[in-house]
Each structure stands twice: as C-alpha cells, then as structure tokens.
C-alpha cells in the first residue's frame, strides 16, 4: 500500500530535481526508534532523459514534540561537515526548515544500506569475535571528532563557541534548566549530583571540540567485520570539552549490563584508544566529572521524554519507554559514579 507521505515527498523532491521526470517515492517505511526525530527509509526513482535512476534515502522529520529539542540545521551541518573525513557519516542531500512540504521541518540523506545499529543484535553472540575491533574503531572515530578543528569545518558558524573554562557550566546550566522545566516529580538523586558538580568544577577544556553529544553503542552502523560505516544521531552536537563526548559513553547505562565500556571493552582500554586518536589526554578526575555530568544529562533526557508524553505533545510509546526503562536505572548510575552504590 502507499504510505500517505509518499506522494507529498515525491512532489517535494520533484522541485529539488529540476532535470528529473517521473519522480517516484516508494517503499517508505518508518524505522523503529527515532524518539528525537521521525526516521523513515524510502526509495527514490526518477528519469533524466532516457536514463533511469534510483537511490535509497532516509527522511528525518521533526516530531510534534521530542525527547530532545534541537535545531535540525545543527544536525544537518554536523553530518555535512564530517562527510568524506575519517569520521564516517551518511551524505546529506536536502534540508527543509519550513512546515509546508511535510508539516514539520526535515532533512533527507543517503541511506547506508546493509549495516546494523542495534546493540541487542551486536551483543547477541555472532559479533563477539569482532567486538575488540569494533571498540578500536569506535573510540578511534570519537578521537577523530575530538581532534577536528570546528572552525576549519565551518561548524563555529552554526554551533555557538564557548570559552574553554566555561564549557562545563554552560552544559550544566542547560541540563539543570531541563530539570526545572520538565521534571514531573522531584529528582533528589540528580539534584544532589548537580550540587556536587557545581561544587567541584572540572579544569578548563584542553581545546574546543565538536561534541557529538550522543556517541554511544547504538548510534553507529557496524558490519560483521567490526567496521563502522556511519556515525548517526548528531542532534545534540555542539562545541565544548572533548572529554564530555568521551564520558557520555561511560555513563553506566551504556554498558548495557555487560560491565564494559559501551558493552565492548574495559574502560581504561577505551580511554587509551581515544587518547591515541585524539592526541589529547583524559585526566581521570576531569573524566569522572564529565561522566557524572553525563549521567545527569541522561536523566534530563529521560525526564524530558516523560514530559513530552505528559503534556500531550507526543503520545507515542517511544516517548514512554525510555522514561519507564531508564529513569531509575539512571538514578542508580548516578549513585554508582558518585560511589554510593
């Protein structure tokens, strides 16, 4: 059957492909997950003269309300900046910030076909032999993101810069404000963590880096050899302390119950790979601060997810599942990082 978005998307793409005729969108289907953006895959076919063309593409559309409210232009430009670099990302094609075409802003990208993203699949057994290689690639790529020059990539034009000694407070202020606005019930553990973070600030960042903001197992495409083909979900990308990005993956939530960083290798091995790739050092005390910060940030995301459902902006079950599954687990992660559990 025809998905109702298909003819509307075909009409939009006809306007973006002036040399094309017989533009057709088919096989459009929503990909599971995607709590911050609705994600669909589809096939685009068209003719240019006598030649027929077809491509597999991805549509990322803003939902009515999201677990993370971000500018899709920032996400789009982050992908575009790293395309063709040592950081593998899908190629961006079109960004539409008006609501006319598909009711909400969206962007379209090439689909990287034939790879997996699911942690559940990764940890089901068949990939066990390649997990060390995958870990090497994972933290090497994150090191490349940290090493990159935001100005050379042009990302300082879309991501506000911040002083090296103010990276931490800008992020902490932002996420504490999320608690203030979104929490449906008091969060005594997260609030205690925030007080500790304010009382024990980290040293200034070694450099201003692009921070992916959600770099964890589950947000990249991998294959059966342990290679990574695409880093996804850049919707929280910003400029900041590169240790923030390293520490997000050390949030105990992202061990997936396996006792290993990212579910893949020992914490210290991951740090060593990242240090080699980035040319930076990960001071243990500073990394601990950022790990606890990221536990607070994670809780802010799950609190925001619950709020989007409660306020009626988004009643989809994907908004409930993170809150039910992770709110208490994230509290336990905070306790663990603070040495209380």
């Amino acid at each position: 059957m025809t998905h109702p978005l298909e003819p509307r998307l075909a009409a939009y793409l006809s306007g973006r492909l002036p040399q094309a005729s017989d533009v057709e969108v088919s096989a459009l289907e929503r990909i599971s997950g995607g709590a911050s953006r609705e994600t669909y895959r589809f096939r685009l076919a068209w003719r240019e003269g006598q030649a027929a063309h077809a491509r597999q593409l991805i549509l990322r559309r803003d939902p009515p309300a999201s677990l993370i409210d971000t500018e899709r232009r920032v996400e789009f430009e982050a992908y575009r900046a790293f395309h063709g670099s040592a950081v593998p990302v899908p190629r961006m094609l079109w960004l539409e910030e008006a609501d006319d075409a598909l009711d909400h802003p969206f962007f379209i990208a090439e689909e990287l076909v034939g790879f997996q993203a699911s942690p559940q699949v990764l940890f089901a057994g068949p990939y066990d032999a390649v997990l060390p290689r995958l870990a090497e690639r994972k933290w090497t790529i994150l090191g490349e993101i940290a090493r990159a020059d935001p100005a050379a990539l042009g990302l300082d034009k879309v991501m506000p810069p911040v002083a090296l000694d103010a990276c931490w407070i800008r992020e902490l202020d932002h996420w504490e404000a999320i608690f203030d606005s979104d929490e449906a019930e008091p969060q005594p553990i997260a609030r205690a963590a925030i007080r500790w973070l304010r009382a024990h600030p980290p040293p200034p960042a070694q450099k201003l880096s692009v921070v992916h903001g959600d770099y964890r197992t589950g947000n990249f495409l991998y294959d059966e050899s342990g290679e990574i083909h695409g880093v996804l979900d850049w919707e929280m990308a910003h400029l900041g302390d590169p240790l923030e990005d390293l520490a997000w993956g050390f949030n105990p939530i992202w061990r997936f119950g396996r006792g290993l960083a990212g579910g893949l290798i020992a914490h210290d091995e991951a740090v060593a790979i990242w240090e080699r790739a980035s040319g930076l050092t990960a001071d243990p005390a500073a990394l601990h601060w950022w790990t606890l910060f990221n536990c607070v940030k994670g809780q802010g995301i799950w609190v925001g997810s619950a709020r989007a459902f409660i306020d009626g902006g988004n009643k989809e079950p994907i908004m409930v599942y993170p809150a039910w599954w992770l709110l208490n687990a994230q509290d336990r992660a905070i306790l663990q990082v603070m040495g209380r559990l």
């Binding site: 061990r255 509290d331 336990r332």
Partner: peptide, 19 residues
C-alpha cells in the same frame, strides 16, 4: 539521606534494569 536514596532505587528496580 543517601541510604534512603539508594533504598528508593532498589524499590523501583526493574528486572531489565541496566544498572
């Protein structure tokens, strides 16, 4: 207070809890 906070997470812990 910390002891009560730890206990509160035990009360709420799900069988599929990641931590």
């Amino acid at each position: 207070i910390w002891a009560e906070l730890v206990a509160s997470t035990e009360r709420r812990k799900l069988s599929i809890s990641l931590v």
